[in-house]
Amino acid sequence: MAVELDEGWTTVITPHRGWLDWRLKQLWGYRDLISLFVWRNFVAAYKQTILGPAWHVIQPLLTTITFTIVFGNIARLPTGGAPPFLFYLAGTVPWSYFANNLTNTANTFVGNAHLLGKVYFHRLVIPISIAISNLVSFGIQLAIFLVALAYYAVTGAGVHMTAWAWMAPVFFLMLAGYGLGGGIIVSALTTRYRDLANLVAFGVQLLMYATPVIYPASSVPAKYRWVVGLNPLTPVIEGFRRGFLGAGEVTLLQVGASFGVMVVVLAVGLMLFTHVERTFMDTV
């Protein structure tokens, strides 16, 4: 009889949970919450603004124009033969998706402590909904890029797409993976070491200069090649440019290696996240 009563427990709360106990099935059960968070992030961000979602267009355009003027016209950095505007746009669009994912998810625990301290839901709901929300602005920016690309192609500027363009979805997936993975690593660590939060924005900025975003990898002096070469984000940006602009130094092997690194970063992130999520309320 007693044995019978002991059966049918649906939840067991224990002190520790395995590093690999990610409960992805439970996460699937929260898909309604994820979509509502995505919707909230989008709607709430533009209430009481004049331009609303137009900011998704204005922001990358202004950044690219600035880059074009500063790096292209003033510093005269090489662009590997591609029109400067298109070249910088092809760098900043994927980069900003990665950077936004990282900086926004890095704040998961500390920024949502009031919510997470009051109610339980799968904690990954927050970073995932952020990555999906960012997908919206990324999509808009990508559309701008494609429009610009079409314009330059029609006017006959030096643009030739290659078969690498088919790899674009893989590159986007990798950018999401890196942004999310890096972001949740930082979010897990900031629950203990608050200083990291200050480092994130600054670190992402530095990382951009170590990645061929505003210059082609081919223009890097041999002495510093290894820095750019070791950066796992290099093949993603270079591959994207090679696909759409026809210029870029990248091999399939590099992409494969980078993909492997991305999987590791994501796995480490999930492990740290799983480890921290249960008790972070005690330290935040």
Partner: peptide, 9 residues
């Protein structure tokens, strides 16, 4: 489940 116990279940 906002925080985990130190021991017990």
């Amino acid at each position: 489940q906002v925080t985990a116990p130190t021991s017990g279940q």
